[in-house]
Every structure is written in structure tokens, then in C-alpha cells.
Amino acid sequence: MCYLTTVKHSMFYWSFGIVLALLALTAPAALLLGFLGAMAKRSQVAVVRWIGSIYTSMVRGIPDIIFFMFVPIALGQGIEYVRHKIKCPDVTEPIRQGNDFVVCAAAKFPLGSADQWVHQTYGFALATVAFAFVFGAFVANTIDGAMRAVPANQLETGHAYGMTRRQVFWRILVPQMWSYALPGLSNLWQILIKATPLLFLLGVQDVVYWARELGGSKTSRYEYPHGDWRLWYFMVLLVFYLLMTWGSEKVFRRLSTRFARGQATQAGQQHLEAKA
């Protein structure tokens, strides 16, 4: 039993926390980005509308994995580039020298002298941004669709009562939209869960990293030598993810019945009838 309680194993158990943390941080960030994206798509300013459209349609054409790989490096280099310009204005050598990206030592971020946990947290933060960016676009698509699904006569009624555009948006459209958006959002949540193992590709020491590390065959240099057990460790991950998706499906089913309350939809009607 001691095998399962080594420090390395406890790091494996902790890495499940990393997955949950990623979910907890990405979901609200993506929701916010998505809402902004959907608003941008409805904007009266053409440029904003285009930005919204490009943002939301980009993820439809390009695999998310490309974003996951691109965004963290690009963002990391962007931050170091800006810091380089600020902190080392005297350095005249170009930052891109052939194949190297060279910024002065003071511009490194995090600093070379920073603790290892700072570096790891930074890596995780960049990954979170990449996830939020991609899922924000998906959410924007869903919310945009939901806003369009709100019956037009509801909005017209608002206008007829003398409400301003802004009031109609915030008081009628947004509250109504959620129940239409919920099925899409719940689906996105499931997809987000299933995208979390991609953290591994970004160099974060997540569940996949530790499953590979622990499962790989061990010679007697290690305390507990064993053969190639990666299959079993991945089985554990499979079960973990199945439980996660199964559990959240249940939660969302409950939520959707609650949201249906008082809505002029079929589900809302059923809700009323059930009560009566």
C-alpha cells in the first residue's frame, strides 16, 4: 500500500486539483469572453462587429489544439518583448537573432531567479488564457444563437413600452437568453472537461504527465520497480473523466428544469402543468 502513498503519487493526486482549478478558472473567464464576443457581434459599430465575427468563426475553421499551442508561446513572447522594450531600452541587438528569441535577462518573465513554483504557475496561467480564449469563442457562438432565439415579439413589446435599446437588451434579451443558451453551454462544459488533458501538451504537470511518469516501467533504481503500467494509469484517468462528464450531465439536467421555469417555451409550459 506504501506504493500508492509515495510523494510522487501524492503529486499525481494533486494534479487532479490542477484539472479542477483549470475548469474553475476557465469557465467564468470563457463565459465573460463569450458574452463580450456575442455583444460584439450585435454591435452597431461595424469594426467591432467584424472583430466579433472573426473571433467566433476562427475557432470553427481552425483546430483548437493549434490555439492551445500557439497562444501560450505567443503570449509569453509578447510579454517578454514588451518587458524587453521597457527594461532594456539600451540593448540594440534585435530580439530575433536567426532562430533565437533573445531578450535581456531582466526582461525574462518570470525572472530566471524566480522559484520553480512561480514558473509552473505562470505556465498554468498561460494555459488558462489559451483555454479561455478558445472556449470564449465557442460560448460567444452559443450565446449569439441564444440571443437570436429569443422571440422577436418579446423585444418589440419592450420597445413598444418605450424602453431604450440598452434596456431591452439588459432587461428582456439577456434574462430570456439564458434558458436558450443552457443546452449549448452545458455541452461546452462537457467539451471543456474533455479538453483538459491537453494541458499536458502545454508542459503543465497535469494528470497525463504524472500518469505517464508513474506508469512508465521502473528499474530497481526506483523504490518500487515495475513494468510498463501506463495502461492502468490511463484507465484511472478514463474513469475519472467518465465520472466528471456523467456527474455534470446530471447537474445540468437539474439546472435546465430550473431555468425553464417561467419561460414561454414548451419546457416551461410543462413545468407549469406539472405544478398545477
Binding site: V7, K8, E213, G216, T219, R221, Y222, E223
Partner: peptide, 18 residues
């Protein structure tokens, strides 16, 4: 900061304490 692979015993590897 010293970079290593952590997968090449006996040169370098990740031990049971991580």
C-alpha cells in the same frame, strides 16, 4: 536553472519523491 530530461536513469530521473 538546470534543465534535464528526468527520464534517463541512471543519469537523471524523477524519483519516488517527485
Amino acid at each position: 536553472r538546470i534543465g534535464t530530461e528526468g527520464a534517463y536513469p541512471p543519469y537523471n530521473f524523477i524519483n519516488d519523491n517527485g
